[in-house]
């Protein structure tokens, strides 16, 4: 049989279009809609800049989750992980200094991710329930560690990371760009990226290819921690405090929505970092638009749930169109 020509049916073409340009179209529609609805509040440079600045919080955290969902797993403890790493790091920043605090935050989050990975792979416990348990444990430790006192940070370095700017653009954007660059290199240019994809698309085939599937999974859980650590620094820096109760509330939801909306299949295998980034922007653009248009915040909450269901349905539609049954 000759395989040197690729032919797509119209259905597959629709699917390909949806996966390539669907998100950009959605982003433009949302941006266009709110820009025309409330131009004075929405279609301004400061608002645009802020939206992008805030999107880094979800955008960076979603990088690790993209890898994780690509391997067919979940981590719903990221919100609490963010809080625990954030409060410990912030307390260190207050006592010792911002730079050390940043390092500690990232190390703690990395460690927490690693613990999740060990539990899921070595004990073969489903990820959802392990990380659900961890969600509460991490949060509880965050409360206990701080005695439920928010850690207000004045450290200049720390504050600068989230609020400073460079060449007219907010610093977090650069940090996010670096994170995505590193993640992109890992996924596309490094062996580990291949392993992640292989484990996600067919873990049996990966194992037969000599890949230590469990180790890859543990690594990916750990990566979730790394990126959540970075997001924790930025989040507490932007807010000026690390609050053990409020910090990261609902974060897991936003992050998972971003990854799924970005086109990563929940069953693992395929996924795109670009999609995740666009989806993080969509979420923030929508949220900012609704807030500026004074949509009741409770409606916004309902909307986020509906968006997640729609995102999954959209993904299902896409895979159905391309004709790929998982």
């Amino acid at each position: 049989m000759d395989d040197s020509k690729v032919k797509f049916t119209p259905k597959q073409r629709a699917g390909n279009f949806l996966s390539s340009f669907g998100l950009i179209v959605i982003l433009l529609i949302i941006f266009g809609f709110f820009s025309s609805l409330i131009p004075k509040l929405y279609f301004t440079w400061p608002n645009f800049r802020d939206m992008i600045r805030f999107s880094t919080y979800v955008g960076i955290g979603a990088i690790g989750m993209t890898f994780l969902i690509m391997t067919g797993n979940f981590d719903i403890s990221v919100g609490s992980m963010l809080a625990l790493a954030g409060v410990i790091g912030a307390s260190i920043a207050i006592k010792i200094g911002g730079f050390i605090g940043v390092i500690i935050t990232i190390i703690i989050a990395t460690l927490l991710g690693f613990i999740n990975g060990i539990f899921v792979t070595k004990l073969k416990i489903p990820a959802f329930i392990t990380t659900l348990g961890m969600m509460f444990i991490f949060r509880a430790i965050a409360y206990i560690y701080t005695n439920n006192v928010p850690q207000y940070i004045q450290d200049r370095f720390w504050i600068f990371l989230g609020n400073g700017s460079f060449l007219g653009l907010p610093l977090p954007i650069y940090i996010m760009a670096i994170c995505y660059l590193i993640a992109y290199l890992m996924l596309k240019k490094a062996p580990i990226g291949r392993y992640i994809l292989a484990v996600g698309t067919n873990s049996k085939a990966a194992a037969l290819s000599g890949i230590h599937v469990d180790n890859v999974k543990i690594l990916v859980f750990t990566l979730v921690g790394v990126f959540v650590g970075v997001a924790a620094v930025l989040n507490s820096s932007m807010l000026g405090a690390a609050n053990p109760g409020m910090m990261g509330d609902g974060y897991e939801f936003q992050v998972i929505t971003a990854v799924v909306l970005g086109g990563t299949a929940l069953s693992g295998g395929s996924g795109s970092l670009g999609g995740t980034l666009l989806a993080a922007l969509i979420i923030i653009f929508l949220k900012s638009g609704m807030s500026n248009a004074q949509v009741n915040s409770y409606w916004q909450q309902v909307a986020t749930g509906v968006v997640l269901i729609l995102a999954v349905s959209l993904n299902k539609l896409k895979f159905w169109l391309i004709g790929q049954t998982q």
Binding site: F128, Q301, V302, G305, V306, L308
Partner: peptide, 17 residues
């Protein structure tokens, strides 16, 4: 997971509304 997690958020939002 996704269904009931989303339902959780939706119902909580609806209750607040």
């Amino acid at each position: 997971l996704i269904t009931t997690l989303a339902m959780q958020v939706i119902l909580r939002g609806a209750s607040l509304l």
